[in-house]
Design a protein around this nucleic acid. Sequence first.
DNA 1: CATGTTAATGCATCATTATTGCATCAATAA
DNA 2: TTATTGATGCAATAATGATGCATTAACATG
Lengths: 145, 145
Amino acid sequence: MEHNKTQQYEDLLVKNGLKRTGARLQVLDILSHRDSATSQPYLENVVGKEIDRVTLYRILKTFEEKGIIHRVLDNHGTANYAICSNSCTEHNHHDEHVHFNCNNCLRVYCLDEVKIPALKIEKGFKIDDMNLVVSGICKECNNAN
Amino acid sequence: MEHNKTQQYEDLLVKNGLKRTGARLQVLDILSHRDSATSQPYLENVVGKEIDRVTLYRILKTFEEKGIIHRVLDNHGTANYAICSNSCTEHNHHDEHVHFNCNNCLRVYCLDEVKIPALKIEKGFKIDDMNLVVSGICKECNNAN
DNA sequence: CATGTTAATGCATCATTATTGCATCAATAA
DNA sequence: TTATTGATGCAATAATGATGCATTAACATG
């Protein structure tokens, strides 16, 4: 990875009070070069020989807590991770955009431009977070036919 | 369970080409008497001594495929099940209502009256299903304070 | 630049959930 | 009443989430 990118990732880690380790930089590099959210099994396949399963698990958990990445559950309940597009913080996630889960290639897209519409919920229910996953066939899979 | 209810469940099974076994009737009875979606672990606790874990798993899977129940994943990726309110069929689920996952009591409510608003998704993406889970604090937990 | 402190990692281990194969049993049709 | 087919229970395995602990690496401090 080129130097400025590395610098960028290192800044991100330091900003969140995390040590800039090889494993964390590698995970950041992979996530930032993917065009869709990345599943835990995929990451494990890619870095499994270099990073321990538990370490990867903990890195993802830490990143999520710090607001560096956000987690989306796909239709199978599998965790998928993507770098937060805008500046999320530890106590204020802004990932309330729609996700698209392709039933064919299983990819999870972050549709950053599609926001979840406001809802009229019965009084008494206090909303903290919303998670909208749309499933179907994605653009690429449609074009491939 | 009273006789007419049992008759109703049996009809539901037969209508879907399923044999009316004790285990299936029991699952239907439990699900229909709950005011919120029921998690797999909860079901296992209740019927674990009478129904094998694998059998329960297969019953839920079969029911979901036939459109008898629908499945909602809560914030932890745990499967929750509820009887479909309107007439779903094997190839046409109509469970596109909003679900509310309480972060306190962990219950999953089916907000049948709250429909998911239409979305403007990029052309090329074909939508099959939508799953909106809102999380926060539910009415009962708010009142309990 | 050497070193002490603390965070991060790797390994072992365990719990839970999802899944399959197969033998047995029960429900329904004949 | 019995044959057939579906449903169940048991054994076993895989994937994932999680914890404890010893070791290692990062980085602040002198």
